[in-house]
Design a protein around this nucleic acid. Sequence first.
DNA 1: GGTCCCGGTTGACACGTTTTAATGAGTTCG
DNA 2: CGAACTCATTAAAACGTGTCAACCGGGACC
Lengths: 332, 332
Amino acid sequence: MVTVGIKDVARRAGVSPGTVSNVLNRPERVAAATRSRVEEAIRELGFVRNGSASTLRAGQSRAVGLVVLDVGNPFFVEVARGVEDVVSDRDHAVILCNSGESPEKEARNLRVLAEQRVRGVLITPAGDDTSDLLRLREHGVAVVFVDHSASGDVCSVAVDDVAGGELAVRHLIEKGARRLAFVSGPKAIRQCSDRRRGALRALETSDLLPGDLTDIVVPEMNAHGGQLAARTLLDEGLPDAVFCANDLLALGVLRVLLQAGVRVPEDVALIGYDDIEFSSAAAVPLSSIRQPTYQLGKIATELLLDECDDPAGHAHQQIMFQPELVVRESSG
Amino acid sequence: MVTVGIKDVARRAGVSPGTVSNVLNRPERVAAATRSRVEEAIRELGFVRNGSASTLRAGQSRAVGLVVLDVGNPFFVEVARGVEDVVSDRDHAVILCNSGESPEKEARNLRVLAEQRVRGVLITPAGDDTSDLLRLREHGVAVVFVDHSASGDVCSVAVDDVAGGELAVRHLIEKGARRLAFVSGPKAIRQCSDRRRGALRALETSDLLPGDLTDIVVPEMNAHGGQLAARTLLDEGLPDAVFCANDLLALGVLRVLLQAGVRVPEDVALIGYDDIEFSSAAAVPLSSIRQPTYQLGKIATELLLDECDDPAGHAHQQIMFQPELVVRESSG
DNA sequence: GGTCCCGGTTGACACGTTTTAATGAGTTCG
DNA sequence: CGAACTCATTAAAACGTGTCAACCGGGACC
């Protein structure tokens, strides 16, 4: 186990350790000749800078944290791609954490990120208690909310979920649905409650009543949760149409309905949310609400790094995208 | 921006910094009364240990790296779940990196991990040049190959891809296929070449010739690559059956074939690999080769941490699982 | 010719923690 | 009763890098 440090490089190149550090961090301040000598020494010795020492001394790392609700959800994978691209452009690293929609796991993840002294955190909060986040900020860690709108003193990038919910349900109503079901995860998850509010708004602007929308709440927003929900629907009597809070739920619902011999969309129309890639390849191609997912991650990261680079001159922004209806067979 | 260090805690609790460190790292060595006093001080002050300083002094961090070929692939997401569970049980963190099947990106990721002084790296190599990995090991970083078998001096956890390929193609042949296509990513990816070898082996044990298997190579092993492959197939004349090196490819192929009016399995039988969750919900439920994915991640991590905890007494192991054929409509 | 300045380089200290040997206070044993 | 031990705690020395004030040599300017 060899350990070659900055001073070994310095000795080899015939300069002081300070100069090597300068080559690493502010190459423009060192004469071209010296620099190339140092760079060669680095290569010859196979030196890799000790990130811990660097972070310790500099007071901040070159990493940001990304905390998502579910790494298994293609929606977040796409967000992560956007984050990754920006972050690696700016020569930083991203530490990906999964909260699994659990506030406890989220808190654990945040503690790890705090210990790592990340420059900032991109997060889709699992609950509505953001006090942990605010404490983080007091410790000098920038925070940007992803897919979650925020108040004035913090950046956020979100998609208008109320509008999305309204879009989905209005579409179902226009297709003739009179009795509807809304399948979602826990109410505490903002995406769920907002999309539900949108759904209700669509009812209001039609001749339907709030009672015409049945709520089905499942513990997890994935295909398994969707299967659970579909069984409940089969037991309690099928509605005309089902709106699912995300595509994974919708795929789970679809699967169980088809197995039970229910025709989609003839017997029950179905629409999901997120427009993940698999939706269009489903047994019955799935209608959905499309969001600018990659953009979400990209812009959130740009806001975050801008804030890190110039905390004083940074003005917090709340960016809100508009979602888009994608109609396929499942509701066509 | 408040920064509270170990010595602030020490002052508050009326002990020395060393004792606080002991409470953090070897609680059993400090008297119960002192310990609870320190713990209270930590809580009151909101102290979070500086991971960089800790790593620097201790010489190793409490993190492992996981480098996968494609975070967008549910196969690796499932592996990551296995890794995550073990790692957080043992109070470590995991840094997830994506190589996107590119050796260059892989090298960049490894450099970052080396800088972070991770204890070990779990990796599915993108190419067959493992010299970077060996260099890492000389720097004291343990390495375990995931979904990639290795020689005696390093741990690996893999699934028998040759057997899997054979399983898939034998099944297609038994279903009556005479002309076959194999859709895969670059040959340099071992999974692809092994599954292809298995396919050829299945031909040998039948009355078919190697020439009866057409190779379609696409640059990316995802749904997009599958669509590309399907268009090639449509142009060059359809075979009786298609074997795809993973399910994402198969889903892409399926989509384009169905759009072109090709009936699956009547006109063309189709089988994928990995048995990801979406496969069973596809337009035509997809036959596939199932692997113990979660186990793969879990066991790899256990091997890795065992090696880290006791490098001397550790015997390298190469574990090989057997895959399993799952027949659904696409080949039924 | 002296002064000033400037780009390039240096040396030493500081970052917050872990670790080791040393210290001190009890406790047991010969 | 002193020696030998144990257990809990401490003080100080690292870990490898970044930073900043100081320094040096050489040109420009008056």
